[in-house]
Computed example of a mutant assay.
Amino acid sequence: MAKDILGYKGKRVVVMGCFSGTGEAAARLLVDLGAEVHGADIKPSPVNLASFTEVDLKKPDAIAAGIAAIGGKIDAVFNVSGLPQTFPGEDVVTVNFLGIRAWTEGWIPHLNPGAAIVSVSSLAGMGYLARQPLLREFMGITDFAEARQWYADRAAELGDPYSLSKELINTWTQVSAPDLIGRDIRINCTMPSPIDTPMLGEFRKIAGDAVLGAFAKAKGRYSTPEEQALPLILLNSDAARFISGVCLPVDAGLAGGLATGVLNIQQMIAEASAA
């Protein structure tokens, strides 16, 4: 029999955002791999989970209650929840970063040695290294209300709240990794290109077909939820036990092409518009 290199059988894992899309796909795959999967979201999941807990990431009390309701020791945390830009900016930043951070940090005392954390970021957060002083200033605010006010006071200069939230996820992941590895806990994130999920329609309202088409050009299509769920599962698995602090593009080579100048996003948008 082949060795179980992923090592999920018998592990207790938590999937935040298991209602639909990538989170639902991840939860299903983890169940198939033999994990004891505990889900959380604002809507019940269709997956046959060990438990489901309703959690609103905008509310610190709900986050703490959700962690207490699931309880016990955990081997892996999957953060897949997120809001698009069609929601108020304060809510986007709160759910996509502040809530995810509070949820994750609340689990850290309950994580077994060798545990791992993975979050879904986005290619929209690619520019995080160019805004480090600003992002680190925001990261220094731990109170939800204070952080929301900080964002509201600067919303015009901060730009797209979704991109900001994903830049924060990338930065937080890499800033947290050195300390967590000292506790035998790994943390990573993925940066997907557009995914064929119900949320894609919300992004289309903001970005338009040309921009989404440009970001899908590398492969000629959008990725599937499963194609995004599998890298999450890999990063939290035993097979990736020496990987931490990584912001992994899952985009069929798009980020690499842009970084090296092989691809030009403005040209790609223009070509997609013409098509």
Rank of each mutant, 00 (worst) to 15 (best):
L98G: 02
Q267D: 14
A155L: 08
W103R: 11
K217D: 02
E146N: 09
A252Q: 06
Q174M: 05
A177M: 13
A272R: 01
G159R: 07
G10P: 05
E146S: 12
D32M: 08
G17M: 10
T104E: 06
A124G: 10
M126T: 14
G21H: 06
N188D: 14
I269C: 08
V80W: 00
A2H: 13
Q132E: 15
P231M: 03
V47I: 04
I269F: 11
I63G: 02
I42W: 11
G220Q: 07
W172N: 08
M1V: 13
G201C: 07
S45M: 12
G159L: 11
W107T: 01
L230P: 02
K217H: 11
G23Y: 04
A214F: 12
D184R: 13
V120W: 01
L6W: 13
P178K: 07
A239I: 13
P113Q: 11
V95D: 01
A35T: 06
G66Y: 02
D56S: 06
A147R: 01
G82A: 07
V120Y: 02
V211S: 04
I181S: 01
A35Q: 12
L134Y: 01
L98E: 03
G106H: 02
A156T: 09
I74F: 03
L232F: 03
L111Y: 08
V95R: 00
G89A: 07
D143S: 04
L98F: 06
G182K: 15
I70K: 10
P192T: 10
A102M: 15
K9D: 13
A25K: 12
E90F: 04
I269P: 01
Q267T: 15
S121T: 08
G82S: 11
